[in-house]
């Protein structure tokens, strides 16, 4: 039965030692441990989250750079295509222009030639006229000596051709 009756001395020492232990351990022991374990847990969670974010960011950057490369390539192709088109059009337009120019030049040359030809014809014609006049003069001179009837003819002709009519 004595086992079931708490002894006052032991009660006293138990209260004292348990109280002291509780006071010290609950103040300087467990809270420190629990707090730092909790802090570590938070830190680990944060690190994991950060790693995940970094991974996502990296993937994002990678896809971004991929798309950038793809668009740059597209751009390059476009530029080349454009340049080709431009080249072709320049060549074509140059050709056209040259053709036009030659056409024009040929035209002008032709006109020139025509003009020249006409001038020459005119010259020739006037030369022929002069020649014929000379010849006619000579002819007339010889014939004039012979007959006064000739003089009459000359005057008649003069009257006919001259603008200054008497």
């Amino acid at each position: 039965m004595s086992l079931l009756v708490p002894e006052s001395g032991l009660l006293f020492w138990m209260c004292l030692s348990f109280g002291i232990v509780f006071f010290i351990v609950a103040r300087y022991g467990f809270p420190v441990i629990l707090k730092s374990v909790e802090a570590r847990r938070v830190f680990i969670q944060k690190s994991l989250d950060d790693a995940n974010t970094a991974k996502a960011m990296l993937e994002n950057i990678k896809s971004q750079s991929d798309s950038m490369i793809a668009s740059a390539r597209e751009e390059q192709m476009n530029i080349i295509r454009e340049a080709n088109k431009l080249k072709n059009s320049i060549i074509k337009s140059a050709n056209d222009e040259a053709r036009e120019l030659t056409k024009k030049q040929i035209e002008s040359v032709r006109i020139e030639i025509q003009n020249e030809k006409e001038g020459a014809m005119r010259d020739i014609r006037s030369q022929i006229a002069l020649l014929s006049v000379d010849i006619a003069e000579k002819l007339v001179r010889t014939e004039l000596k012979e007959s006064p009837a000739q003089m009459q003819l000359i005057n008649k002709l003069l009257n006919e051709s001259s603008p200054f009519k008497s």
């Binding site: 032991l10 006293f12 030692s17 348990f18």
Partner: peptide, 18 residues
């Protein structure tokens, strides 16, 4: 209030725990 065998054991065990 004697420090009996159990009291001393308690004190020793508390020291170990601390």
């Amino acid at each position: 209030l004697s420090i009996t065998k159990n009291s001393l054991a308690l004190i020793i065990n508390c020291s170990v725990l601390l």
